[in-house]
Every structure is written in structure tokens, then in C-alpha cells.
């Protein structure tokens, strides 16, 4: 059963940019609100997706 998706670096970076635009925040702003537990569900979804992207790219800081 196929359950793996491969994405290029460019696709991931493009998706990361689109996610930040969708919530209207910089990553630092998003992270700070996450640490303060003040994210709305859609913002938390974007935050989680961005962290996944950063992990895949090896640019995660957590």
C-alpha cells in the first residue's frame, strides 16, 4: 500500500512560503504564538506543516 510522498526542495520551500502567507505571519511570530498557546486551529495546522517541512529540509531548530 503506497503511503509515501516525495517532494522536491523547491516544492517544500514554495509550500512553506504559501503557508506563512495563508496565516499572515512570519515564522517567528507563528512560533511565538505557538509557545504561548494562542494559535487558532488553522494557524496551528500551518505551524505544524511548516515544522514538518523544516524537518525534511534539515533546517529545523527544534
Amino acid at each position: 500500500m503506497a503511503t509515501a510522498i516525495s517532494m522536491s526542495r523547491e516544492e517544500l520551500l514554495e509550500r512553506r512560503k504559501a503557508l506563512l502567507e495563508s496565516v499572515g505571519m512570519t515564522y517567528d511570530e507563528l512560533r511565538d504564538r505557538a509557545l504561548a498557546y494562542t494559535l487558532r486551529p488553522d494557524e496551528r495546522a500551518a505551524y505544524e506543516a511548516i515544522r514538518s517541512i523544516d524537518y525534511l529540509l534539515g533546517s529545523d531548530s527544534h
Binding site: A4, R9, L12, E48
Partner: peptide
């Protein structure tokens, strides 16, 4: 269904598993 995402490069060594 959980799915795994992986960077499409030969040096990739990380995956993220989540429902998408």
C-alpha cells in the same frame, strides 16, 4: 491513513509521518 513525506533527493534521510 498515515502517510510519510520525504525529500526527493538522494541524500534524504528524514521522513515525517502524519495523516494528510
Amino acid at each position: 491513513r498515515f502517510s510519510a513525506a520525504v525529500l526527493d533527493e538522494a541524500t534524504a534521510d528524514r521522513i515525517v509521518v502524519v495523516i494528510r
